[in-house]
Design a binder for these strands. Structure first.
Length: 947
RNA sequence: GCGAGAGUGGCGGAAUUGGCAGACGCGCCAGAUUUAGGAUCUGGUUCCCGAAAGGGAUUGGGGGUUCGAAUCCCCCCUCUCGCACCA
């Protein structure tokens, strides 16, 4: 008597699929519709799969299985984003090589995914840590290194779209004569300064106690997350990628993709394009004092009017960026970021101590501390002044950390009258405030940032903001004191890490006689790639901020080139993002030894048609991947301008809902809204469902209904102890039940709480399906004797066709929860009927198969089919079969439902109205009233309006 | 603070896009089967009044448009998720 036993049938079909290579994508067939469906690249962590993974993976699997049955050629690969810190930290703790840990974790992940029955083409699997893969990651880095961005290049891509601006080979960069005159080395340095991959000093979080560099997330309040050790900010030579050069392209071409608006918006905000003005404030040549400042101003202005606004700010001016040039007359002081190069020079002797102290303080703070915690504005006066270019008045120059060196020019003109931050600062330090926009009479606040006529602004007075901006910009332009650049919030991408477990850079630094870097570089030739990580060396922290690879064996770290130049290998490694930036390309051609992807295969399979993953990658991964894609596109390696067509974010799965009550120190219950979580010192008590009841909006304690109880679901976390392990669910209920439950929980994109009894519900459904098809009481598996080759009746056929239609349409909408409920309705209706026509059961199994493939294969097989149903044609529905002879039509009187009438489905309005009026329940409500209007919508409803 | 999304039974969620609110599942209640438990099957289950027939209320709250609103418009409240001194 075989019951539904997933533990028996699931491994069997998994083995069958593997043996028969059922889901291997064959050679691309021209003319047949293709579908490339991709899951976001998982990091194979040591904890194994969590229940969030199967959510997206099941969704994509359903689409793929469905599309194979509709005749599409489907590309559905899986691989591993396996470089990264956890394996390295594990290695430092245990001495196990990260490679070993990584490949062991991959084995676990692969086993778990196979256990869930996903239809990946495993022959395409790879890991970012495979040298055969990172060889091409390094090659792409060399392409970036070999590319400069020509903002003026007008061209039409293979996609037919016209663009201005293109990444071009560095050899095509025009060398100015004065550079060429400086010789070969000058030319090389000039080229290096234009490459998309370049070097730059950038601060890192150096923790001397741990002897390692930490990421921003690992630093909390200036202390290390592990061990609370102090963290310093140190400038270090780093690699940067000039993603900002592509900012406009990344922004504009968002219109080419089918992504959720919210994700597009996040990207737009992250790129943060703003147009404003750069304005130069005269400070005089070095050594100018406040007394002598005035003297040079007039002649400087005259020079500028004659020569115009220079590209680079000279030593005699402070250049600021502002989006509100119309408020220039209200600029009553200036502020420099503590890191601004002019700070030292502008600080007068008596202020030196205060200023350098302030700079040191700012350097110690992380970016987070400087923003989040700095409620009260801080700063120091340099003692120097600059001249406001529109009215010639000297204004003080301050240093404050509310101005960031990395945005705009690192200096601002402060307009406290129209800027809240500047107002706050002016209040603290008692600086003058001048309103230059007329606030409305009822305006109560401090700084006024709204629109209004300009005041106290001479030739701008009376103009609204936009007009005033235009007017002042043309004035600044004419006098050579300002210009209108575009600014981005987006920064260039810090592309190096001081870690061992990442891709090495294919870069060599030239050394001088003393063994110091000259700043000149050479690259590893393409054919010598990959650059492997060194073997046999201790990757433990060596106690200095520079990368662990600095301690690599000399034969890895040094060599002498043919011309006798001593070279030292780049010792930084690439960040984890690198490998995930292009993996979707490699899947189209994973074994290619000649290229990163064959151009024909790229054209065949790209772009990704459906990309599903968590919203945590809304900005960075998607932006970085788009950036690399565009560089490769510009360089002629790709035919598609965007990597991902349709993007869907799966929602988070929370832990099971919890009911929590609170008791104070005395042990008395306290209502949850009365509790201030920050100060509450009592205990929280977990309650069961029968201890509480619903009263109005809230849950309250049954024993004391005055006490309000918290009811909510929390994010799964080890510390909360509410983590669900997919292995346990599979062991208990089977993979099909887990897959179906995760799809049945609610809409794919919604955040939703886990429910163990929900899993049981779905598992019971699979049991009903099993009994509908099989004879449970027989000793060996055999079809249920109610299943017979008889004709289905009209009602059954209507239900079948309705189910086919709904399930098909729901899958296409990714509305899996409603598709499953349709399948349930079907079994509820025919699961007990006898006989059960084969012609009903077989299409049903096919409809079920994308969701619960194992049980479906088993039942299909039981009904006498020799081979897998994976490529059976998907059932089709017949609209004519959906029609019924009669329809129940609701009848309303004054909008309230008062009855229902059954009429022929093709009845005309008069017939329907007559039937409605004669309905007993309706007639009662019409009786004695005047009929004002009758609305009859055939096939839908009737509404009588009466008085 | 700014931005986005969401508020529907005891719970997760449906609702053809303006036309029978609560599909489907969980939970609960009753019945059948069973020595019993489990499993299974059948029926019921938004709330209130009522023995019933029936009636009333109801999609976070308030207002509006409409014959008709969960759905469209305005105001407010709550929750979740991003971003956060970007000049």
């Amino acid at each position: 008597m075989p019951r539904y036993d997933p533990a028996r049938i699931e491994p069997r079909w998994q083995a069958y699929w593997e043996q028969h290579q059922t889901f291997r994508t064959g050679p691309y067939e021209p003319g047949r519709e293709k579908l490339y469906v991709l899951d976001m690249f998982p990091y194979p962590s040591g904890d194994g799969l969590h229940v969030g993974h199967p959510e997206g993976y099941t969704a994509t699997d359903i689409v793929c299985r469905y599309r194979r049955m509709t005749g599409h050629q489907v590309l559905h690969p899986m691989g591993w984003d396996a470089f990264g810190l956890p394996a390295e930290q594990h290695a430092i703790r245990t001495g196990t090589h990260p490679r070993e840990t990584t490949y062991r974790n991959i084995d676990t992940f692969r086993r778990q995914l196979k256990m869930l029955g996903f239809s990946y083409d495993w022959s395409r699997e790879f890991s970012t840590t495979d040298s055969d893969y990172f060889r091409w990651t390094q090659w792409i880095f060399l392409e970036l290194f070999d590319t400069w961005y020509d903002p003026d290049c007008e061209w039409t891509g293979p996609d037919g779209r016209q663009r201005t601006g293109r990444g071009r080979p560095i050899a095509e960069l025009a060398i100015p004569d004065e550079i060429a005159a400086g010789g070969d080395e000058a030319v090389r340095r000039y080229q290096d300064s234009h490459r998309l991959a370049y070097q730059h000093e950038a601060p890192v979080n150096w923790c001397p106690a741990l002897g390692t560099v930490l990421s921003n997330e690992e630093v909390i309040d200036g202390l290390s997350e592990r061990g609370d050790h102090p963290v310093e900010r140190l400038p270090l030579r780093q690699w940067m990628l000039a993603i900002t050069r592509f900012a406009d392209r990344l922004l504009d071409e968002l219109e080419l993709v089918d992504w959720p608006e919210s994700i597009k918006l996040s990207q737009r905000n992250w790129i943060g394009r703003s147009t404003g003005a750069e304005v130069d404030f005269y400070i005089g040549p070095p050594e100018t004092s406040t007394e002598t400042l005035d003297a040079g101003f007039a002649s400087w202005q005259a020079d500028r009017t004659a020569c115009g606004f220079p590209d680079a700010a000279g030593p005699d001016v402070l250049r600021v960026y502002t989006t509100r040039p119309d408020t220039l007359f209200g600029a009553t002081y200036m502020v420099l970021a503590p890191e601004h190069p002019f700070v030292d020079r502008l600080t007068i002797d008596s202020q030196k101590e205060a200023v350098s102290g302030y700079q040191a303080q700012a350097a110690a703070k992380s970016d987070l501390d400087r923003t989040d915690l700095a409620k009260e504005k801080t700063g120091v006066f340099t003692g120097s002044h600059a001249v406001n270019p529109v009215n010639g008045s000297p204004i003080p120059i301050w240093v404050a950390d509310y101005v960031l060196i990395s945005y705009g020019t690192g200096a601002i003109m402060a307009v406290p009258g129209q800027d809240e931050r500047d107002w706050e600062f002016a209040e603290v330090f008692d600086l003058p405030i001048l309103r230059t926009v007329q606030a409305p009479e009822d305006f109560q606040g401090k700084a006024y940032t709204g629109d209004g006529p300009a005041i106290n602004s001479e030739f701008l007075d009376g103009l609204a903001i936009d007009d005033a901006k235009a007017r002042i910009i043309s004035h600044l332009d004419e006098t050579g004191q300002g210009t209108t650049p575009v600014n981005f919030r987006l920064r260039d991408w810090l592309f190096s890490r001081q870690h061992f477990w990442g891709e090495p850079f294919p870069i060599w630094h030239e050394l001088d006689d003393e063994g110091n870097r000259t700043g000149l570089m050479r690259t590893d030739p393409d054919e010598s790639l990959p650059v492997e990580l060194p073997e046999n060396f201790d990757f433990k922290p060596h106690g200095r901020p520079d990368p662990p690879l600095e301690e690599a064996p000399d034969d890895w770290l040094y060599r002498t080139d043919d011309d006798g130049t001593r070279l030292k290998r780049e010792s930084n490694s690439m960040p984890q993002w690198a490998g995930s930036c292009w993996y979707y390309l490699r899947f189209a051609d994973p074994q290619n030894q000649e290229r990163f992807v064959d151009p024909q295969l790229e054209q065949n399979w790209l772009p990704v048609d459906l990309y599903i993953g968590g919203a945590e990658h809304a900005v960075l991964h998607l932006l970085y991947a788009r950036f690399w894609h565009k560089v490769l596109f510009d360089r002629g390696h790709l035919s598609t301008p965007e990597p991902f067509g349709r993007l869907v974010n799966q929602g988070m799965i929370l832990g099971e809902a919890e009911l929590t009550g609170y008791r104070d120190e005395a042990g008395d219950w306290v209502s949850s809204p009365e509790i201030d979580t920050a100060t509450f010192a009592g205990e929280s008590v977990s309650l069961s469902g029968d201890e509480v009841e619903k009263r109005g909006e809230n849950f309250v304690l049954k024993s004391d209904p005055g006490i309000v109880i918290d009811s909510r679901a929390f994010k799964m976390s080890k510390s909360r102890g509410n983590v669900i392990n997919p292995d346990d669910i599979v062991a208990h209920y089977g993979a099909d039940a887990l897959r179906m439950y995760e799809m049945f929980m609610g809409p794919l994109e919604a955040t939703k709480p886990w429910s163990m009894s929900g899993v049981e519900g779905v598992s019971r459904f699979l049991g009903r399906v099993w009994r509908m098809i099989t004879e449970e009481r027989a000793d060996d598996p055999c079809p249920n004797r109610a299943i017979q080759d008889v004709a289905a009746d009209d009602d059954q056929l209507r239900l079948l066709h309705l189910t086919i239609k709904s399930v098909t349409e729901d899958i296409e909408k990714l509305s899996f929860n409603t598709a499953i409920s349709r399948l349930m309705e079907f079994t509820n209706a025919v699961g007990q009927s006898d006989p059960r026509p084969t012609a009903l059961m077989e299409p049903f199994i096919l409809l079920l198969s994308p969701f619960a493939p194992h049980i479906s294969e088993e039942l299909w097989n039981l009904l006498g089919h020799e081979s897998s149903l994976a490529y059976e044609p998907w059932p089709e529905w017949d609209e004519a079969r959906l029609m019924t002879a009669t329809l129940d039509i609701p009848v309303q009187v004054n909008g309230k439902l008062r009855g229902k009438v059954t009429v022929a489905s093709d009845a005309d309005p008069e017939t329907i109205q007559a039937a409605a009026e004669s309905d007993e329940g309706v007639a009662r409500h019409l009786d004695g009233k005047t009929l004002v209007k009758a609305i009859v919508i055939p096939g839908r409803m009737v509404n009588f309006v009466v008085k």
